[in-house]
C-alpha cells in the first residue's frame, strides 16, 4: 500500500502539481523576461504624458510614475528577486545540509560546535540582524544579498538534517552497510542523503518562501536592490507613494510575491504530507 515513493506521491497530489506549475511559470517568466517583456524596464519614454497610465492593452499592468511599463518591470524584477531568492535558498540549504550532516555523522566536538551555533543564532530575529548588517555596511549588490540572506538561513535546515541523519544512522540498513565496511562518505551519499532528500526539499521550499519576502522587505525599505534595477520589493516601494491614485502599482507586485510564496508554502506542505504518507504502516 505504501509502495510509491515520496516523490511519486507528491507527483500524484493535485495541489502539489498546481503549486509546482505556478512556481514553474514564475521561474520561466523570469528566465525569458527579455523576450517576454514588451518594453525596456528602465527606459522612461515620456515621463509626462505616459505617466501613471491605468492598465491598457499596450500596458496590461499600466505604467509607473516614470512612464515605465509595470509588466516589463515585474518580469525583469522577477529575475532579480527570484535570482537572489534562489541563490540564497541554495546557499542556506547546502550550508545547512553540510553542517547538519557533519554534526550527525562525525559527532563529538563538531556536533557540539554546530549545535551550539544553531542554538545561539536561531534565537536572533533574522530580519533585524540582516537590517542591522545592511545599515552598517550600506545598501548591497544582489551578490552580497545572496550571501547575507543565505548565510543567515541555514539554521533550520541544519537542525532538520542533523536530527534526520541521527535517526537514520541508528537504523539497521545503515548498520548493515557499516558492517560491510562502507565508508562514511559512502553512507552519506548512498544511504543518508537519498533518505533525507524529501525533508531537505521541505526545508528548501520553506527557505524559498522565507527569502522572497525578506528580499522584498529589504528592497522595500531601500536597503536591498537599488533602482533603477527593478526588483519586486523596490517596484512595490515605488508604488506605495501612489497607493490611492494608481492601485496597479501595488496590486501586481503584491500578487506576484504572494503567488510565489504561496506556491512554495503549498509545495512544502504537500511534500510533508507525502513524507508522512510513506511512514504510515501498510
Amino acid at each position: 500500500m505504501s509502495g510509491a515513493t515520496t516523490w511519486q506521491r507528491l507527483r500524484d497530489d493535485a495541489a502539489a502539481r498546481t503549486a509546482g506549475a505556478v512556481l514553474g511559470a514564475v521561474i520561466l517568466a523570469a528566465l525569458f523576461a527579455p523576450w517576454l517583456a514588451p518594453f525596456d524596464p528602465t527606459v522612461q519614454p515620456d515621463p509626462v504624458s505616459l505617466r501613471l497610465l491605468a492598465p491598457t492593452p499596450t500596458h496590461p499592468m499600466g505604467t509607473d510614475a516614470f512612464s515605465r511599463d509595470v509588466l516589463s518591470r515585474l518580469l525583469h524584477g522577477a529575475r532579480i528577486s527570484l535570482g537572489v531568492a534562489a541563490g540564497a535558498m541554495l546557499l542556506s540549504v547546502v550550508l545547512g545540509t553540510t553542517l547538519g550532516a557533519l554534526a550527525a555523522v562525525i559527532g563529538g566536538w563538531v556536533d557540539a560546535v554546530v549545535s551550539g551555533l544553531v542554538d545561539v543564532l536561531i534565537a536572533m530575529p533574522r530580519l533585524l540582524v540582516v537590517i542591522a548588517l545592511v545599515a552598517t555596511f550600506g545598501a548591497l549588490s544582489p551578490g552580497w544579498l545572496v550571501l547575507l540572506i543565505g548565510g543567515s538561513g541555514w539554521l533550520t535546515t541544519a537542525r532538520i538534517v542533523r536530527a534526520e541523519f541521527r535517526d537514520h544512522l541508528q537504523r539497521d540498513y545503515v548498520l548493515a552497510a557499516r558492517a560491510l565496511g562502507a565508508s562514511r562518505r559512502r553512507i552519506i551519499w548512498r544511504h543518508l542523503l537519498p533518505a533525507v532528500a524529501p525533508q531537505i526539499g521541505v526545508a528548501a521550499a520553506l527557505a524559498l518562501a522565507a527569502v522572497i519576502p525578506l528580499e522584498a522587505a529589504l528592497s522595500f525599505v531601500g536597503l536591498g536592490v537599488q533602482p533603477p534595477m527593478p526588483s519586486w520589493g523596490n517596484i512595490l516601494m515605488d508604488g506605495t507613494d501612489y497607493l490611492t491614485t494608481a492601485w496597479w502599482l501595488v496590486v501586481f507586485p503584491v500578487t506576484a510575491i504572494a503567488l510565489t510564496v504561496g506556491a512554495a508554502l503549498v509545495l512544502a506542505d504537500r511534500l510533508r504530507v507525502a513524507i508522512a504518507g510513506g511512514e504510515r504502516t501498510p
Binding site: T5, R171, D172, Y173, L175, A176, A179, L180, G181, R190
Partner: peptide, 24 residues
C-alpha cells in the same frame, strides 16, 4: 586489516523491513 575482517564477519538483522535501504 579492518576491511578484511568486514569481509570475513557479516550480519543479518531481525527486521527485514528496516535492514534493507528502501530506496535501492
Amino acid at each position: 586489516v579492518l576491511q578484511r575482517f568486514r569481509r570475513r564477519a557479516q550480519v543479518v538483522f531481525q527486521d527485514p523491513n528496516a535492514s534493507l535501504d528502501p530506496r535501492m
